[in-house]
Amino acid sequence: MLGEILHILAAAIISWILFVTVDILFRLPEAGGVSGASAVARDIEAGGGALAGGIMMGNIVCSPDASAGTLLAACGVYVAGIPGGLAAAVLVFIGNRICHDPGYAGTTGAVLATFVVYGFTQVGFAATDFIAGMVIAILTIQGLSHAHASRLLARLWRVRQ
């Protein structure tokens, strides 16, 4: 019981680092890939947040990016192992094209997350820990405090620049 909770928290930290790194490497905070992202960014900035972080949060809302790729790859590894994760990457790629997003952040994140999740299932983690961990990770970015989360993402974006 307690061990499972600790596994979920560790998985949350791992998937948080994974998807924020992939998103920032693919320059998501730079510009709104779709027109809705800039509207979300404008409202987050009006609520006291930073613009670069708001654009990244708007991109996460409007198109399946690395966070969606990580979640669906964990789901794929849970139902079918490595082939399931790669099937999830294909589904994320189709989803990106449906949402008019030209980027490859979601597909790359899904492929990377497949191998990360599969590697951690070999050392005692369950794939379900990563599904719950990814939901906790997205909660910390999008669901607790938009002002603080966007300032944190903007600070990480300045470091990358």
Binding site: D43, G47, L71
Partner: peptide
Amino acid sequence: NTGRKLPYVNVMNFAVAG
């Protein structure tokens, strides 16, 4: 605010998909 509502809905979508 509609623009700040959407990230919360996105968290719910992640949770339901999981």
